[in-house]
Amino acid sequence: MPITTKSVCVIGAGAAGLAAARHSLKAGLDVRIFEQTAQIGGTWVYSEEKGCHSSMYYEMKTNLPKEVMAYRDFPFDSSLPSFLDHRDVLEYLQKYSDGLSIDFNTTVESVTRIEEEEKWKIIVQNGLGTFDYYFDIVFVCNGHYFRPNNPYENSEFEGNLIHSHDYRHAEEFSNQKVIIIGAGPSGIDIGLQIAKTAKEIHLISKKAVYNSLPENIQQTSEHVEKVTKSGVKTVSGQEFEADSIIVCTGYHYQFPFFDSTVVRLLEDAHVVSPIFEHVVHVDYPKSLFFIGLNLEKAEIPAREELEGYEERQMSHQSSRGLAKRFYHLLQHDQWSYLDRISKLGQFESWKYMKTIEKITEYLQDRRKLDVKNYKMINFRFLDEEQLEYEIIEEENQ
C-alpha cells in the first residue's frame, strides 16, 4: 500500500509562516500557504494606510540585531548594519520566500476538526469565491500585531488619540504636546522619533525609567488612572495635558478562524489556551501548532504533562512576579525554553545559540544605559563559526 504524503496548511506568510513552510517542505510534506494580504512579510510590510494589518512606521530600525534575527540557514547580507531598516528585513524575507507557492489575497475563514477523517477542514475566501480544503497538519502563523490593545479608545479625550498600531510619521506631531502611554519598545522608539518634531513629550509608564533621553521628554514612572478630556491623570493624582495621546500598550492575540471549542483566549486575549510549551495544541499534539517547530520527529509527551503545562507555567510566572496576562512573556527564560524546544523537536545542536544569548543579554543591559544610541552598535564576527565577535560603535549622526 503506497504511503501518502501528509499535507500541511500554513496560515500566514510572515517570518514564522515562511520558516514553517520551508522546514515542512524539507521534511517531504505537501505544503500550501494562505496569506490574506497581497505579499509576504506580515508585520514587516509597511503601509501608509491606518487601521490595516500593518503596525510598521515609516522610519523604523529593528530593536534586535540581524545577528540574532537571521534564519539558521539563511544569513543576512554581511554588508548591512546590525540594526536594520524595516525595508531590509522585508527584502530578506522576500528572498527567503523564493520558490514557495503562496495563495495571496486569501483569507482563512474557519479551521475545524473532522475527527472521523483525522483531518482539518479549512475554509478560505478570495476574489474567486469560497473554497474548502482538507489538511493533516495546520501551522498557525498569523502573527499578533494587528489587534491593538487600547484600553482608552472610548475615552473622553478631545484631542488626537491613537494606538501605536496607527503611528506612521513623526511630522504628524510637529509642535505638539504629546503623551505616550506605555514605555516598552514601541513607546520609547516612537518617543525618540517624535522628540525631533514635538514641543513636549510625557512618557508615562511604570517602565519609564530610561537614561539620557532628549530634553523634551519627561518621564513619569507610574500607571495612568484615566484619560481625561484634556490629557491623562495618573494613579498618584498627577495630571498632564496634551494635543495628542499615543497608546503603546501592546496587542491582543486573535484567531478569528477558530471557535472556542478549539482555542480559548484568556486574560483579555493575552493567553492562548490550551497550548503546550507555547507551540503544541494539547488536544492535537500531532497536527496543530502555533509556530511550526514540530514535524513529528518529536516524541509526544504524556497526556498528563501536556495538560499540566498551563498550570505549571502560570505558577512559574507568578513566582517571577508577573500577572497572568504575561503568561507568554519569557524574557531571560527564553534560553532554557529554546533549549527544551530544541530537545523536544530533536533538532541538531547549534553552538551559535550561545552567541545569540550573549548578544541579546549585552544589548538588554546596554539599552537600559543608553536607549538613544544602542542601535548604533554593530557586531563583527572574528571566526568562521561566529562564536567570537567584537563590538563596533558608530557615531550617532
Rank of each mutant, 00 (worst) to 15 (best):
F276N: 07
G182Y: 02
I201H: 00
Y145A: 08
K226W: 01
I246W: 05
L293F: 13
V178F: 13
F290W: 06
I359V: 15
Q193P: 06
I291C: 10
E388I: 02
L93T: 10
K351L: 13
E118A: 14
I377L: 15
V140R: 02
N396M: 10
K358P: 08
N211A: 15
V271H: 06
Y46W: 10
E156W: 02
A298C: 02
G42M: 06
S287E: 09
S79F: 03
R168A: 05
T197G: 03
Q36V: 08
N149G: 03
I180V: 13
L306H: 05
Q176K: 15
G143W: 04
F347G: 06
A242D: 04
T112W: 01
K229F: 05
V282K: 04
Q218R: 08
V111L: 15
E388H: 15
Y46T: 08
A19T: 00
N105E: 11
K121Q: 11
S212Y: 12
Q386L: 12
V227L: 04
G127D: 13
V31C: 00
S101C: 09
Y374F: 15
P2M: 02
K61F: 14
Y362G: 08
I341G: 01
V178I: 10
Q39E: 14
Y352L: 04
D365H: 07
E241Y: 01
I356H: 05
L18C: 02
V263Y: 09
G143N: 03
K351G: 14
W350S: 06
E388F: 12
E267Y: 03
R264M: 11
G182H: 03
V31S: 00
A27W: 04
